[in-house]
Amino acid sequence: MTGSRIVSLAHHQPTRVLTNDDLAVMVDTSDEWIRSRVGIATRHIADADESVADMAASAAAKAVARAGADAADIDLVIVATCTAVDRMPSIAARVARHLEIPGAGVFDLNAACAGFSYALASADLAVRGGSSRTALVVGVDKMSDFLDWQDRSSCVIFGDGAGAAVVTAVDAARPGGIGPVVWGSQPQRGSAITLGTTGPAGPPALFRQDGHVVYRWAVTSLAPVAREACERAGIAPSELAAVVTHQANLRIIEAVTRQLGAAGALVARDVVDSGNTSAASVPLALSKLVERGEVPSGAPVLLLGFGAGLSYAAQVVGCP
Rank of each mutant, 00 (worst) to 15 (best):
I91A: 10
Q209F: 11
G298N: 11
S8I: 07
P89Y: 06
T245I: 06
V52D: 04
V95C: 01
R5W: 04
N249T: 10
G196M: 06
L250P: 01
F207Q: 04
D148V: 05
D28K: 08
P200G: 01
A279K: 07
Q188M: 12
G264T: 11
E228Q: 15
S131N: 13
D270T: 15
F158E: 10
V181F: 00
A84R: 09
A96S: 12
W217D: 13
A172S: 15
A126Y: 08
G307L: 12
G261M: 14
V38W: 02
S278T: 15
T194I: 10
M143T: 09
H212F: 07
R37H: 14
A263F: 10
S311I: 05
D160V: 09
G307C: 14
D49I: 10
C155E: 09
T168M: 03
D21N: 11
S274Y: 15
A268K: 02
S311V: 11
I78H: 00
R37V: 11
D54C: 06
W149E: 08
V38G: 01
L222Y: 10
D171G: 13
R232N: 12
A173G: 15
L23P: 06
I40S: 09
G293Y: 14
L195Y: 00
S281Q: 08
P224N: 12
P89K: 07
I193H: 03
S154G: 03
E254G: 04
D141K: 05
A241K: 06
T2L: 15
A285T: 05
I6S: 03
E239T: 00
Y312P: 13
T194F: 01
F107S: 02
V106A: 13
A123S: 05
A60P: 00
G129C: 14
D124M: 02
L284I: 08
A192R: 02
D270H: 15
V267L: 14
A84Y: 03
G309P: 13
G130F: 07
G196F: 02
G161P: 07
A92L: 04
G264K: 09
F207G: 04
G211P: 06
N20Q: 09
M55S: 12
P180M: 05
G264E: 13
V256G: 13
I178G: 03
Q186D: 15
L304R: 12
G318W: 02
I78S: 00
I235W: 01
V167R: 01
